[in-house]
Nucleic acid binder design. Structure first.
Lengths: 202, 202
DNA sequence: ATATTTTACTTGAACGATCAACTAAGTACC
DNA sequence: GGTACTTAGTTGATCGTTCAAGTAAAATAT
């Protein structure tokens, strides 16, 4: 996969992003990574101190890719705030279908795999989650007046992320998009009820 | 940890259950497993064909442990159907706190880690999830008349599971029970709105 | 402008440790 | 004497990492 135009360092990050997602961190061997990136081990250790240092770089990269890859396409497709949230979720549905229901959120996977004592890695994962929640929170703020007064927007956004991660997980083990769809349908119902309650006493 | 009273086979399953949860499947080496169970490799291969066969046995064990360990204590504590669902979720909150927010659902972790091509393992994981959903569905059926007519109980139970898994995941990366609590609080609100809507037009 | 040194990066073999898996000889209880 | 199980050790492959030797271009000195 690595393009000839990419630098050695970028090829390593590219391959790591793919392999850590596909096989996990422990499940990816250095040999596999080096072969995929077409890099010799010596060059690897010129750019990175260790496999773990590369993981941190990958997690940092996700932080920069979140908006352009996950959020912006959804925001570009829909104007309406609530529609934007469900457009983000529809993006994950696409990913599930594109991988024949083998999809696992790369961050979710690492969140559960990486040793909790690896604090820097978990800090970066949490930062990614916070950034995702922040994007959803933007939409919620834009529709704040339609929601019941006093609604905890941050908690609601966290709820959306938790549901997405759980839905993706279930769809992977079921090898069917159905549990994801069911979960999203219930979330839609939740918002319908919230908006209904919001118009009652504004 | 393995008690002297346990058989060799049971010690292996016991240790595997612990280590696959703590370090993951790929992250657990045979040497570590054998040392933890105090078993020699020859004995291991007398009882199991491979490390993967042991994984299947562990997943099968979870299926048998779900009700006695996860469900029954919650059902014993609360009588009211909706309260029972939140008692199950409170059990996970306890696990998060007991592990100093390092908790990862053993099934969720394996669902994201295990290679999707490992069909037998994923079938067992999905069976576990289905069983969990079934238990929650029991509660929902018992309060069916209080919910809006035509509510998809199975979808609602799937929704609860997805939310629990996502909440556990976020709390692990945040190293805080807060995201879990926030998600559960929103779920409580969802049920409040559902029950409110259910009493309007019965 | 040319010679010299420094820096940046690549090469691929080799390190010791550990990996999952297997075997054959042995013990213990029927 | 036969079945069930344990013992201790070996297998060759693979693990993440290191290293000495090399190249090519940029920076510095003459």
């Amino acid at each position: 996969m690595p393009e000839a135009t990419l630098s050695t360092r970028d090829r390593l990050i590219h391959s790591a992003r793919y392999l850590f997602w596909e096989r996990g961190f422990a499940g990816t061997s250095m040999a596999e990574l080096l072969a995929n990136a077409e890099v010799n081990s010596g060059s690897f250790y010129h750019f990175f101190d260790s496999k773990e240092a590369l993981l941190r770089e990958v997690l940092d990269g996700y932080l920069r890719l979140l908006r352009p890859i996950v959020i912006e396409p959804a925001f570009a497709a829909v104007e309406e705030p609530l529609g934007r949230i469900f457009a983000i979720l529809a993006g994950y549905r696409e990913r599930i279908l594109a991988t024949d229901c083998r999809y696992g959120c790369p961050l979710g996977r690492l969140a559960l795999e990486i040793d909790p004592e690896n604090a820097p890695a978990h800090a970066l994962i949490a930062q990614n989650f916070r950034s995702w929640i922040g994007c959803v929170c933007e939409c919620l703020k834009a529709m704040k007046d339609k929601l019941p007064p006093g609604t905890d927007l941050d908690a609601l956004a966290t709820y959306v992320l938790a549901l997405m991660e759980g839905g993706v997980m279930l769809s992977r083990s079921y090898r069917s998009v159905e549990p994801f769809d069911r979960s999203i349908a219930q979330l839609r119902e939740h918002f319908r009820l919230l908006l209904q309650a919001g118009t009652k006493s504004p």
